[in-house]
Structures are given as structure tokens and as C-alpha cells.
Design a protein around this nucleic acid. Structure first.
Lengths: 214, 214
DNA sequence: GCCCATATAGGACTAAAGTCCCATAGACAC
DNA sequence: GTGTCTATGGGACTTTAGTCCTATATGGGC
């Protein structure tokens, strides 16, 4: 991928530019267009927050200092709303503590204006790749969680014991029920989670954040 | 943990101060002592690199600008040498790109001088906690890897199939050997890895970074 | 009062996994 | 060339898991 003019493959990602300076929005828009990226521009953080949540792959190019909510405030809002999309900060009047705070909170980059075009392109590549990975993982995790929610409380309990590697006999003893009953719940767990092996169950549990009991 | 004078529990961590300014070393040393931390000071990055690798829990408080190797250079060296210990940068003449670069490479914090004492203490807490967690995980991963290295190539191969959840019969077909032979290798895998269930094997594989085949 | 979901469990069976015994054959070391 | 490690497998067996059938009890919802 040596051609900087088309470094983005697959479905075209969308970049959200949030900056109060119209000339910045315009020039960024032009650059992003030329890179084959879809662009949406917003003059303030509040304006961006009014937009419905974007479900596709993308990232945000965000000015730090703006009237109303600052870029950092927007970062906090998105984080609180669990609406995560990688952020690239651009700033005319930033300082070190600001940039460090932004990076600690997960920003992909923090570019002081004026910045080199190539720096932004590199950051965009990284941000979009990060979002692609994160979205794929979240989608899978949600998928698994949805299936797990179909389990009855008892089935869920058995599920958590099964992923420890315990035998049916041991689980039955622990819960003071017949091994037969464990087998039945276990079979339902496999069916509802569409699993064919304990190994698959363990992987699902990891991805969905299910912890073994005790 | 509201007492800032002793926020560090368990085995006393060691903090390595690397700064060419003797007065900084002295005052940091005093502060760290008062926090119950063991301190070692170094006047240059090279001097620190000469020290044998420290195996315990701790972190580095590192000046950015120094004669010889800079703080950033030291960060790179440690990363290359796989000698990872959380780094807190302190800097008198830093700038944004510098701080961002440091944070991208995993620094815990980047404090411009002069900094508030409390800021450093917070960063130290975070760094030491991070190191504690990382060390514990690495220790466990190495432990598992050591056991995995005891496997013969064929046993390792079977191991990777087993963690996919495949049946012995299926593995036997794939490798064009008798199911009986698979059972034997499988039994040795369980024995050598001290595992009692496929679930445990799957967890070990995750921690040791073993990927299923194909 | 009846239907449905949930949790419980027995009986009879198949399939898979694990555990002993045994054996052969190649590779490599000393 | 004798010994050890590795990979291969057969036979006979036990244990565990999974799959049908059946059934009972309980608690809600309409």
C-alpha cells in the first residue's frame, strides 16, 4: 500500500470532521474526498451529537478548542454514551497535559496545527483500521451475548460450570441434583449457543466476558 | 487508600529515576522514599542500561532530555530488548509531538516540569499497578510456554487440533492415522501440560498465544 | 382450569474419551 | 548394537457424554 491516494480498502469508511473553523472543514473535506473517504462535517460538538449514531466503520477528526463543548468534552460524552469511534485530535492551541489526557483516554493521535498532510493520513489509516477491528469484535461479542441471554438462569449456571471443565458428575454434586439433569441443561446450553464442543463454549465465554463461578 | 504516604501495598516496588539533573534525582529520591518505595537513581540512560535486568515490580521515572541517549531513546531500547517496565516521563522542554509519541509507545504519563507532586504519585500508582498485572500475566504465560515446549512436534500438532474441539476421530482422519494414536498423543498432551480438561487446554492456548491450525 | 416454560429425573441406548495391557519401527546417541 | 525417544497401532476395558423415550412438579399468564 504505497499509494497514499487510496489507502483505504473495502467498504468506504466515513470520517466525521468536527471543527468550528469553516476553512479547516473545507480543506479537510477536500483531502478526505481525494483519499476516497466519505466525509461529514460539523461546526460544533453539539451538532455532531445530534446526529444519529453511525453504525459503520470510520473515525472522528476533532478540533480541541471550540465554542460550546470542547473536543475533549465530546470525547468524554462519546465514551460515556459507549459510542466509541477512534478520535484524531487536531489543535491550534494545545498543550502537553491536554494531549496526554486525550491519549490516555484512547485518542489515536493528537496533531498540533499546522500538521503535515502525511501525518494525518497515517493517523487516519490507523484509526480506521482500529475501528474496523473493534467493530468486528463488538459485533461478535454482541452476537454471543444475545445467544447467552436465551439461557434460563439454571442453564446459565450450568454453562459457567461447564467452561471450567468440570464433569457432569461433579457439577451435579455441587448443585445437589442428578447427573441426568445436568446433562439435560448442558444439552440445551449447547443447542441455544450453537456450540459443538466445550472448546467453543470456552471461547464464547471469553469473548462475552462470562466468568467461571466461585 | 486515602493516605498518600503509603499507597503501595505488598512487596515494596522499586522506582528507577533516570535524570541528568542531580537536584531532580535528589528531590525525587526523597519523595519516593517517603512513599515507602525503593529508589535507584541514574544520571544517564546508558548508566541505567548497564544495570542488570530488574525482575521485580516497579517503574521508571524518566527525563526526556539528557546527554547521550535521550529518554525516548531509552524507551525504544527497552522495548526492543523486551525489557518492559512502565515509564513516567518528566520533561522540562517537551512538546506535544514528543508527548504523543511517548504515549503511543505505552508511556503511563508525561509530566512537564514543574509538576504537582500529587500528579506524580497518581502516575506512580498507575504505573506500579500496571507492572504488577503485566508481570503476573507474563509469568503465567512463560510457565505455560515452558510446559508446551515439552511437547514433541506431533503432540503439539494434536494439541492445536484438540483446542478446536475436534473429536479424536476427526483428528485421526485429518492426519490419516488411527484414532488410537490420537488418543495416545492426546493423553501425553494432558499429562505434560498438567491439564484435566479440554477447557483448561483452551485457556492455556489463549494465554500462550497458541493458534488452532488452518 | 389449562397451557407453557422451567426444573427435575429415570431407563435404555450409542458414541466418545480415557486407561490399562501389548507390540513394531525408525532415528539418534554413546 | 543396545538403549532411548518418538510415532505408530491393536485389544479389552471403564468412564463419561450425548440422545432418544418417558414422566412429575411448580409457577405464571390468560
Amino acid at each position: 500500500m504505497t499509494d497514499n491516494r487510496s489507502p483505504f480498502t473495502g467498504v468506504r469508511p466515513t470520517v466525521f470532521v468536527v471543527d468550528d473553523d469553516a476553512s479547516v472543514r473545507k480543506s479537510l473535506s477536500r483531502l478526505l474526498d481525494s483519499l476516497g473517504l466519505i466525509t461529514e462535517t460539523y461546526a460544533s460538538a453539539d451538532e455532531f451529537l445530534k446526529r444519529e449514531h453511525y453504525g459503520g466503520v470510520g473515525c472522528i477528526v476533532l478540533d480541541v478548542r471550540m465554542p460550546g463543548l470542547s473536543g475533549m468534552d465530546l470525547q468524554d460524552e462519546l465514551s460515556k454514551a459507549d459510542y466509541s469511534m477512534p478520535i484524531i485530535f487536531i489543535s491550534g492551541h494545545g498543550n502537553i497535559p491536554m494531549s496526554v489526557r486525550a491519549m490516555k483516554k484512547g485518542a489515536v493521535d493528537f496533531l498540533p496545527k499546522p500538521f503535515d498532510e502525511q501525518e494525518l493520513i497515517d493517523a487516519l489509516k490507523k484509526a480506521i483500521e482500529k475501528d474496523r477491528t473493534a467493530k468486528a469484535e463488538r459485533t461478535e461479542a454482541r452476537d454471543i451475548q444475545t445467544r447467552i441471554e436465551q439461557l434460563t438462569p439454571r442453564e446459565y449456571e450450568i454453562f459457567r460450570y461447564v467452561i471450567t471443565g468440570m464433569l457432569n458428575k461433579q457439577i451435579a454434586f455441587k448443585l445437589d441434583i442428578a447427573e441426568k439433569t445436568v446433562k439435560i441443561h448442558r444439552a440445551r446450553v449447547f443447542e441455544k449457543l450453537c456450540a459443538n464442543s466445550v472448546a467453543e463454549l470456552v471461547r464464547m465465554a471469553e469473548k462475552a466476558g462470562v466468568e467461571p463461578p466461585d
